[in-house]
Nucleic acid binder design. Structure first.
Length: 176
DNA sequence: AGTGCGATTGACT
DNA sequence: GTCAATCGCACTA
């Protein structure tokens, strides 16, 4: 859920990637720095960084305080206040509004100012049950694959996505 | 102070 | 399918 002056935009998370303890691809692997210190917060806090000079990546810290690990949120199925997301993205096509980690943050207007925020409490950005038509997701509906754009520790199967969702990013070859 | 590099995207052939 | 833009930050000296 993203609270903005114009309204509350929300979406269902349909794709994530895990960066666990000991993962050489994780930003926390080489210890705490100014950029990545939010990864070391209690689970459920936002770690946001700028990639390639233009795309913000939204992560959720996933361990106890002092342990650096997190989950990258890679794609959303837009649910509420879709017009806000269309304006933020400058495009119309629903499928592309939040398909990809940089597009997702652009659609929700998320940047480093929200870094370190507790996502388990209501606020400008939080994880809630905003789905107007909640649906139970069975274990067989979650696919696993290698992570996208990762060179180190490349064969970990730590990307998870909702099978069959058109809002998932990545090439079809890994979305089986 | 200088250097190199991305957990990407959009434009283009 | 290929490719370059873009910039904060970690690293080295």
């Amino acid at each position: 859920m993203r609270e903005l002056p114009e309204g509350v935009a929300s979406g269902r998370i349909v794709e994530t990637e895990a960066y666990v303890v000991g993962d050489t691809a994780g930003h926390a692997y080489r210890g705490m720095t100014r950029r990545n210190c939010s990864l070391f917060l209690e689970r459920g806090h936002a770690y946001i960084y700028l990639a390639y000079g233009s795309s913000y990546m939204l992560n959720v810290s996933s361990e106890t305080p002092g342990i650096g690990a997190g989950v990258l949120i890679r794609a959303l199925e837009p649910l509420e206040d879709i017009p806000i997301m269309r304006l933020n993205r400058g495009i119309e096509r629903l499928r592309d509004l939040a398909r990809g980690p940089g597009r997702l943050t652009a659609a929700l207007r998320v940047d480093r100012r929200l870094d370190g925020l507790d996502l388990c409490r209501e606020g400008p950005l939080w994880l809630g049950r905003g789905d107007p038509e909640p649906r139970e997701i069975g274990p067989g509906e979650i696919g696993e694959s290698i992570r996208i754009g990762v060179s180190r520790d490349a064969n970990r199967l730590q990307r998870f996505y909702l099978r069959g969702s058109p809002f998932v990013s990545g090439p079809r070859s890994i979305n089986v």
